[in-house]
Simulated assay, not measured.
Amino acid sequence: MRVLEQSDEHLILDRAAGTVELRRRNLRRVHRDVFSVNELAQDGIMVQADEGAYLIALKLISRSDPLPMRSYYQSGRTVRAGAEAARKWLASDPLKA
Rank of each mutant, 00 (worst) to 15 (best):
A49H: 11
R24V: 13
R2A: 01
S75R: 14
R63D: 07
Y73L: 15
K88W: 00
W89N: 00
D14S: 15
S75N: 04
R29D: 11
P94E: 05
D8L: 15
R77G: 08
D93G: 00
P68A: 04
L13Q: 09
G82P: 04
A16V: 06
G44C: 03
I56S: 09
D50A: 10
L67S: 03
R80L: 13
R70S: 13
Q42K: 12
D65I: 01
A85Y: 12
M1Y: 05
R28P: 00
S7F: 04
D93C: 11
D93Y: 00
E39L: 13
S36N: 14
L22A: 14
E84P: 02
R32A: 07
H10P: 00
M69F: 11
S75T: 15
L40S: 04
Y73D: 07
E9Y: 05
L4M: 04
V20K: 02
K88C: 00
S62H: 03
R32I: 15
E84G: 04
I12T: 06
A85E: 15
G18E: 01
E39M: 09
S62T: 10
L11A: 06
L4T: 01
M46S: 13
E5T: 12
A83V: 08
V20R: 03
M1Q: 09
Q48V: 11
T19S: 13
D93V: 00
E21W: 11
K59W: 05
A85I: 09
R25C: 11
R2D: 02
E39N: 08
I56R: 08
F35W: 11
L13P: 01
R87V: 00
E84W: 05
D65R: 13
G76P: 09
G76A: 04
T78L: 10
M46I: 02
G18K: 00
Y73E: 06
L55A: 12
A91E: 15
D43P: 07
A49D: 15
R63E: 15
I61K: 14
G76V: 15
G82W: 01
R25F: 01
L4I: 09
I61A: 09
E51I: 06
K96W: 10
V47C: 03
R25Y: 01
A16N: 14
D50K: 14
W89I: 00
I12Q: 07
R70L: 10
D50T: 03
V79Q: 02
S64L: 09
N38P: 08
R2F: 08
P68T: 10
H31Y: 08
R70F: 09
D65A: 11
M46L: 11
P68W: 02
D14R: 04
M69T: 09
R87S: 00
G82F: 02
Q42W: 08
V34D: 04
